[in-house]
Simulated assay, not measured.
Amino acid sequence: MRKVSVLALSLVLLLSACAPNFQKQNDTVQTEEKTTGKAIIPKYNISNNYYRTILPFEPGEARGLVVNNINTRYDLNEFEMGLMRIAQNSFSTDKYYFQEGQQIKGATIKQWLSRQYTPAQLKANNIKASDNIGLNPVNTSPTGSTPSSPIYLAHVLEHDYLTKDDKGNVSLAGITIGLALNSIYYYKLQTDGDTLEKKLPYAEVEKQGKNMAAEIIKRIRSMKNLGNIPITIALFEQQSKTSVVPGNFTAYATVDEGSSDLNAWKKVDEKYYLFPSTEATNDHRDDTIAFLNFKQDVETYFPNYNGVIGKAFYSGGQLQSLDITIPIQFYGKTEGIGFTQYVTGLVMEHFPKYLSVTVNVTSVDGPESLIVKEANATEPFVHIYQ
């Protein structure tokens, strides 16, 4: 028998990942900051897929830059959450605690994101040679013309991981760095102000990203108290500004404690697809057919409606999760409840047990219902918004 819950959405998000790992109490620990004080480790670990976060929350040094530099909110979410997934290869969620990046100053990251300058450009722009630390290549084209080289690096994201000793002291024990790289370079010509775009070959993007990663590691090693901290650094290819699915991480490398050399790069086999789409049909035909059958049955409820779209996440070539959005107009609450019940049955019928599926039903008035089928669950969780 299917359940209809009126629990708050926040609880849904907490419960939908996987079974919570609840600890008995909050831990109050001593931090090693410039200003001494107490920090709290939350007693609830909602999932082994997430890290417990040191409280009170300390915003990252580069807070705000990521919003300006990442193309879409889809890329923004995946850039942050994907970097956490990669961190778990080096820093386990049961031993390490998460904190937003505190080591690299926001002003420093901003300088890293700029271009390198020629001596003439430094003089013309009144820039000190010591501030010529941009990681993007020099633009040697005349002002107002097409740039001689693209901007490859869009953002640098730092996450810190802490551990607690037997005395309750918490200290930095690991760092992950994400490099957001452009798949499309957008630029303006001063002559007419139009925004132009250039598709960047990924082979060149990856080459530039790996070179930048090596340089960033050297710079981090020269910073105070960071000479011996293990580091993981990863490359993220963001999508275009019009994309409705996020980009993905493509590779990562680790740096051992006390070393400045990157270990061998490892491929990250992850990708998002839009359902339905030609790319999804070409690469994953069977999964696309299952989605189209689901979509067709939804449309039998509303014969003139065809707005069902899905965002599919693949890892290792296998479909891991599917997020479906159904925007539709209802003329009464009971109609929305009936439709949700119908769609819930379709979810259980059309998709395999191993697959995690989320369906958001929305209208012009906002969210109407949420259906969550966790992997291998025998019953879905359904929430009707009041």
Results as ranks from 00 to 15, higher is better:
Phe291Trp: 07
Val357Cys: 02
Asn306Glu: 09
Ile86Glu: 01
Gln329Asp: 15
Glu80Gly: 03
Ile40Phe: 04
Thr334Gly: 02
Ala62Lys: 05
Lys38Ser: 13
Pro201Cys: 14
Ser92Tyr: 10
Ala253Asp: 02
Ser47Cys: 15
Asn126Phe: 08
Leu172Asp: 06
Ala375Glu: 10
Gly60Asp: 01
Lys24His: 15
Val245Asn: 07
Asn49Met: 11
Phe313Arg: 11
Ser16Glu: 15
Ile109Ser: 05
Phe57Tyr: 14
Gln190Met: 11
Asp286Arg: 10
Asn304Gly: 03
Ser10Leu: 13
Ser141Cys: 08
Tyr331Phe: 07
Glu61Lys: 10
Gln102Cys: 03
Phe294Leu: 07
Asp75Phe: 08
Gln99Asn: 05
Thr288Trp: 00
Thr300His: 05
Thr300Arg: 06
Gly209Trp: 11
Thr334Met: 14
Lys333Ser: 02
Lys353Asp: 10
Lys123Val: 10
Pro352Thr: 08
Pro276His: 03
Tyr186Cys: 00
Val6Trp: 15
Asp283Phe: 02
Ala129Glu: 11
Asp131Ile: 05
Leu55Gln: 07
Tyr152Ala: 02
Lys267Cys: 00
Glu349Asp: 11
Gln320Ile: 09
Ala213Val: 14
Asp27Asn: 09
Asp131Ala: 14
Gly82Met: 14
Leu319Val: 12
Leu9Asp: 00
Tyr96Gln: 01
Asn225Gln: 13
Ser240Met: 09
Ile220Gln: 01
Ala203Gln: 13
Gln320Arg: 06
Asn77Gln: 11
Gly134Phe: 01
Tyr314Ser: 11
Pro147Lys: 04
Asn211His: 11
Val361Asp: 00
Ser171Asn: 14
Val347Leu: 00
Asn132Asp: 06
Ile229Phe: 14
Leu179Pro: 01
Leu7Gly: 06
Thr281Met: 13
Pro246Met: 08
Val347Asn: 01
Lys188Trp: 09
Ile41Arg: 08
Asn21Lys: 12
Lys267Phe: 03
Thr28Leu: 15
Ser369Gln: 04
Ala234Leu: 07
Ala107Thr: 07
Thr146Val: 14
Ile309Lys: 06
Asp194Cys: 01
Glu374Met: 02
Thr281Gln: 03
Gly178Ala: 04
Glu374Asp: 13
Lys188Gly: 11
Gln341Ile: 15
Tyr331His: 09
Ala290Tyr: 12
Asp365Pro: 15
Gly317Met: 07
Pro59Leu: 04
Gln88Glu: 07
Leu162Pro: 00
Ile289Asp: 15
Gly366Gln: 04
Asp27His: 15
Ala107Pro: 11
Lys24Trp: 12
Lys224Cys: 05
Gly174Ile: 00
Ile326Cys: 01
Leu13His: 12
Gln116Ser: 08
Gln296Ala: 14
Ala62Ile: 05
Cys18Pro: 08
Cys18Lys: 14
Ile151Pro: 03
Gln111Trp: 03
Glu215Thr: 12
Ile151Thr: 12
Gly168Met: 02
Thr163Asp: 02
Pro327Met: 15
